[in-house]
Design a protein around this nucleic acid. Structure first.
Lengths: 162, 162
DNA sequence: GGTTGACCTCAAGTTTGGTTCAGGTTAAAG
DNA sequence: CTTTAACCTGAACCAAACTTGAGGTCAACC
C-alpha cells in the first residue's frame, strides 16, 4: 500500500510549475523568470505546459541558497551552466560549484571585518579624512573586488580639518 | 606666500558641484541625485548654481563609506538627518551615527559566517535536502533579518533522494 | 564680446529580481 | 459536458541608485 501512486504529486517523476512552486517555496512567476534566464529548463506537454524533472527541485534550492549568500542570479546561472548536461549532477558536482561560493563568502567576510574595524578608526573618530583614511581609499588593503561602489576616490586632497 | 589664495579652489570656503565631484570621487549626477534625496544640501548663487559648504565633503565621504558597508541610501539619509542642523557636526556626532553601522556589520558578518559553515554541510555534501537542510530553512538559527530573499521555504517535503 | 566649459532642469533609460495584470488555453473533477 | 483551477504569454510595473540626453543658461578667459 506504499506503492507508487500516480495520483499523489510527489510520486510522479515530473513536476508541474505549481508543484515545483509549492515544494520549493518559490512563486510560479519567479520560476518562469528563472526559466527565461536559463537557470532552469522544462519540457512542454502537448498542451504547452511546463514539466520539470525532479532534479529541478535541487537546482531551485541551490538558486535560493546562493541568493541568500548574496550571489547575483547571473553568476548562479553561470555556475549552473557548468553542471553536466548529459546526466544528473552528483554530490561531487554540487560540491565543486559550491566551493566557489564558499571562497567568495570567505573573502566577503574578511572584507567586511576589515571595514568594520576601520569604521571605528575613521568614522568613529570623526576625521573621515579623504587623504588619510583607509576606508575612503580602496587601493591598499581594502579589496577592489566586491559588491560595493566601483571606485571610491581616485585622489582626494584634504588640506585642513574642515 | 602661503596666505589663502581665492584662485585655488580648495582655499575657497564653498565648493561648486564640480569641485565636490572632483574631490569626493563621486560624479556630478550622483551628487545631484543625493541632493534630490536630501542627503546633502546646497545654497544657490544668483545664477542658480549650487554651492556646498566644505563640510559636505565629509558627508559625501560618509555616504560612500556607508554604501561600501552595504547600507541603502535611504538608511544613510535617515542617519544623516539626525545630525544637528544648527552647527557643524563634531567627532562625537559622527561616532554616534557610525555606531549603528558597526553593530549592523557585526550582525551581518555573523550571519554570513553561519551561512558559510552551513554551505559546507549542505551544498557541499550534495544533499541540499529541502526538508533537513538548515540553509533552506530560515526558521532556526539563520536570521530572518538581513538583505536576503524574504522567505525561502515555508514547508518543503522531500520524500526521496532524487 | 564671443567662444568654451561648467552648470542648470527634466525626462527617460539602465540593471536586478522579480510581481501583477489582461486575455486566452488546458486539464481535471463532478 | 460543464465548470473551475491551473496553466500560458506578453506587457507593464516596482524599487534602488544612478546615468544619459536634450535643450538651455552662466561664467571665465582672451
Amino acid at each position: 500500500m506504499e506503492a507508487p501512486n500516480p495520483a499523489v504529486p510527489w510520486d510522479r517523476d515530473e513536476l508541474t510549475v505549481g508543484d515545483l512552486a509549492a515544494r520549493s517555496g518559490v512563486s510560479v512567476s519567479a520560476l518562469h523568470f528563472y526559466e527565461r534566464k536559463g537557470l532552469i529548463a522544462s519540457r512542454r506537454t502537448s498542451g504547452n505546459q511546463r514539466r520539470y524533472p525532479r532534479e529541478t527541485l535541487r537546482r531551485v534550492a541551490f538558486i535560493r541558497v546562493s541568493q541568500r549568500v548574496g550571489i547575483p542570479l547571473a553568476d548562479i546561472g553561470a555556475a549552473l551552466a557548468t553542471l553536466p548536461g548529459d546526466r544528473t549532477p552528483t554530490a561531487k558536482d554540487w560540491r565543486r560549484i559550491s566551493q566557489a561560493w564558499h571562497d567568495d563568502l570567505d573573502a566577503r567576510i574578511e572584507q567586511l571585518s576589515r571595514l568594520r574595524d576601520h569604521l571605528t578608526d575613521c568614522i568613529g573618530c570623526g576625521c573621515l579624512s579623504l587623504r588619510r583614511c583607509a576606508l575612503t581609499n580602496p587601493h591598499d588593503e581594502l579589496a577592489e573586488a566586491g559588491p560595493g561602489p566601483r571606485t571610491l576616490l581616485v585622489e582626494g586632497l584634504e588640506p585642513d580639518g574642515a
